[in-house]
């Protein structure tokens, strides 16, 4: 299958311009470049707006507690308090908390990768009685407010003797998260049916079609799934709070909450810890995004 190899098309940034130069004439390319200049302008302005909170969190993390709320407000600390970062790490085992989060992320990601494509494939490609009603039932899982399930689910896991373990936090992902199933169904439905029809005529089984044709072509959707699994597991506060008991098993989301005291928040340390905690999420996304770009849209170019 030559299709498979092109699915992971590298994000070659100059390829467009290069192709333009070869295919048409120089003026088109120049016009494209001027357009790019305008695009960059918009992007930089927007990026600045989106960066303000991060910059603010960063400078806040370097201030003394009194300095944060002085008048007139200051952007930069008089003397950067780098010690805030050391203090935050000294106060709670943040590295340990982040490691725990990473473990949870990996198990959940594994669970989603095993379950979601399989379930989504059935909804997207296979014909079976009851499909429509099962699909609506699947969607309805997302509509029920999570808080109402809190006590019955706790009761269930308690009866199974799983309180204090990671099981309640990872088990559900092996049964498929409806958000990701829906996402994957919608994605698979846009993949031309000719591809798997042809394979079926060649004698490929249902599972071969899923794992050799449909799944490789769904790489962008799988990437979205992994990025969101990372983000949601990383930020999930209420489940680990409810199910875990051992201080050293807490993920970073619960760890950050320890910076909010009964009588106030040590904002500088809290911001330092928050900033550190989001770095892994951003780094993962930075590297994952190349798989968002590419996929079937690049097929035609190779042909």
């Amino acid at each position: 299958m030559s299709l498979n190899s092109s699915a992971a098309h590298p994000n070659d940034s100059f390829a467009d311009i290069d192709r333009q130069l070869r295919r048409s004439n120089l003026t088109t390319a120049l016009r494209r470049l001027a357009g790019n200049g305008f695009l960059y302008f918009i992007m930089v302005v927007l990026a600045l707006i989106f960066m303000i909170p991060l910059l603010w969190m960063f400078t806040t993390s370097l201030k003394t507690r009194q300095e944060i709320f002085v008048w007139p407000p200051t952007w930069l600390p008089a003397v950067p308090q780098w010690d805030n970062y050391a203090d935050a790490f000294a106060k709670y085992p943040l590295a340990r908390f982040m490691l725990n989060s990473a473990i949870l992320v990996m198990i959940n990601a594994l669970g989603e990768v095993i379950s979601v494509p399989l379930i989504a494939f059935a909804f997207a490609r296979l014909r079976f009685p009851g499909k429509r009603i099962l699909f609506i039932m699947m969607l309805s899982t997302m509509m029920i407010p999570g808080q109402i399930k809190l006590i019955p689910l706790f009761s269930l896991f308690s009866r199974l003797g799983l309180i204090g373990t990671y099981w309640p936090l990872v088990l559900p992902s092996f049964f498929g998260n409806p958000f990701f199933i829906f996402l994957m169904v919608q994605y698979m439905r846009t993949i031309p049916r000719d591809l798997d029809e042809a394979a079926r005529i060649d004698g490929a089984s249902t599972w071969t079609i899923l794992y050799r044709i449909i799944l490789p072509l769904s790489l962008p959707a799988v990437t979205v799934m992994l990025v969101f699994t990372f983000l949601w597991t990383w930020n999930d506060f209420i489940s680990p709070l409810i199910y875990l008991s051992d201080f050293n098993s807490y993920p970073i989301s619960v760890g950050l909450a320890f910076f909010q005291g009964r009588y106030g928040v040590e904002w500088n340390m809290f911001m330092a810890a928050t900033l550190i905690s989001i770095i892994p999420v951003l780094v993962l996304y930075f590297f994952a995004q190349r798989h968002l770009i590419g996929g079937i849209s690049t097929l035609g170019l190779k042909g």
């Binding site: 919608q186 994605y187 962008p220 969101f228 968002l292 996929g295 079937i296 849209s297 097929l299 170019l301």
Partner: peptide
Amino acid sequence: IIYLAGLQNIPA
């Protein structure tokens, strides 16, 4: 991000 993934499925 989700739109971005969706855009990839439009044949060039």
